[in-house]
Simulated scan of single mutants.
Amino acid sequence: MITPMAIERTFVRTRKLATLLAGATLAASTTLVAGAAPASAAGPCGSSYSRVGVYAISRGDGTRTGTLEVYYSSSARKNCALTYGYGAYANTRSWKRVTISRADGSQEDTDANYYTYYAGPVYVSAPGACIDVAGTVPDWVTRELNNVHCG
Rank of each mutant, 00 (worst) to 15 (best):
K96M: 05
V124N: 10
A34M: 15
S47N: 12
N113Q: 13
G46A: 09
A119D: 00
G128V: 10
V122E: 11
L32M: 14
Y49G: 02
D111G: 09
E69V: 11
G120R: 05
E144G: 13
N113P: 10
Y114R: 12
Y118G: 05
S74C: 02
R51I: 15
A76S: 15
S47I: 10
R51S: 13
A112K: 14
G66E: 04
T142M: 09
A90Q: 00
Y118K: 14
L68Y: 07
R102I: 08
G105S: 07
Y71G: 04
S125R: 05
E69P: 08
P138M: 03
G60F: 03
W95L: 00
N91C: 05
A119Y: 05
P121K: 08
G105I: 12
Y114T: 01
A41D: 02
R64V: 15
D61K: 01
A81C: 10
T116S: 04
N113I: 05
A42P: 01
Y118A: 13
G66V: 03
R143C: 11
T116M: 00
V133W: 07
D132H: 03
V122A: 11
P121T: 09
V137E: 03
A88C: 06
S74G: 06
V33M: 13
T110I: 15
S50V: 15
D111N: 14
A90N: 00
D111Y: 09
S73C: 09
V33W: 12
G66Y: 07
S75E: 05
S75T: 11
S125L: 08
N79K: 12
S48E: 08
A36G: 13
V52F: 09
N79C: 11
N91K: 01
A129W: 11
A34S: 14
A103K: 00
P38Y: 02
V137I: 05
C130N: 04
R64P: 10
T83G: 04
D132W: 07
